[in-house]
Amino acid sequence: MLRFLKSLSGTVHEERCQDQEPSINGGTHSCGDDGGGGGGPMSLTVWRKSLFVGCSGFTVINSDGNLVYRVDNYGGRRRQELVLMDGSGTPILTVARSKKLKMVDDWLVFNGEISSNKQKPICCARKYVDILRPKVKRLARVYRDPYDENSGYVIEGSYMNRSCKVLDLSRNVVAEIRRKETSMEGVSFGQEVFVLIVNRGFDSGFAMAIVLLLDQMFI
């Protein structure tokens, strides 16, 4: 299976610039900002499947075919908590549905695994719902501070079609989800394999946490 994923990484987007290695050292994440860094956009191939039999989840490789992130949901059932790990299995971030009963579901993002009920999330997210404008492109909002409209990021587009953009408050695109393209006629990767583009200065682990948020919200 991993060999198959490595073959997928060979069909990298033509617009790819120099790739930079993702931060997978298990350090503290800060809701997207990794402090900058050199290089251009990073292209990650995301497969909506675990490497392990009997698990659902995600497998993420870089353009060199190296495993950088994974999610293994044992039992294959939908869970209230998803743990994003690096390639070696070290927990990086946990995405958890809020347990409070509300009309609109909230999700929380924690550093590492949740160790206690007193652990504070690093940020929160809310699915965007507007019954007056049902065709609006906005999908969700990620807040650095709980529900402060002057902090965080906005996700627009369509996750179902694997066409989304993550924008900061200045409307700059910091990450993007795209369909995986192939030059081979008649070959399509479908919706289970797609590309996550992470622009310079945005944390790739947090970008993958946003993918998990969208998958929980819209699948």
Rank of each mutant, 00 (worst) to 15 (best):
V211C: 13
G157A: 04
S7D: 06
V109I: 15
S56W: 02
K102T: 14
E192N: 11
D203A: 04
Y143M: 01
S204P: 14
G10V: 09
G27I: 04
D106M: 11
N161E: 15
I131A: 10
M208P: 04
F58K: 02
G38D: 14
S204G: 09
M103K: 14
K49R: 12
V195G: 00
E113H: 12
G152C: 13
N62Y: 05
F52Y: 02
N150D: 15
V154C: 01
R16L: 13
T90K: 15
S23N: 15
A209Q: 01
Y128G: 09
T94W: 01
S88G: 06
D203T: 05
L51S: 02
D130N: 15
S188F: 12
I114K: 11
M42D: 09
V104H: 13
I92Y: 02
N66S: 04
K137Q: 11
D86H: 00
P134V: 03
E185A: 15
G76V: 05
Q191V: 14
G40R: 02
E156P: 10
E192I: 07
L213E: 01
C17P: 07
N161R: 12
M1G: 06
F189K: 01
G37P: 01
R70M: 07
D148V: 13
D168S: 05
I122W: 01
S183Q: 13
A175P: 05
D130M: 04
G190S: 08
I61W: 03
Y147D: 14
D168G: 11
D105N: 14
R162M: 10
V195M: 04
P22A: 06
Q18V: 15
R16Y: 03
G35F: 00
I92M: 15
L93D: 07
L108F: 02
I197R: 03
A96D: 00
V129T: 09
M217I: 10
F4N: 09
G26E: 03
E14Y: 11
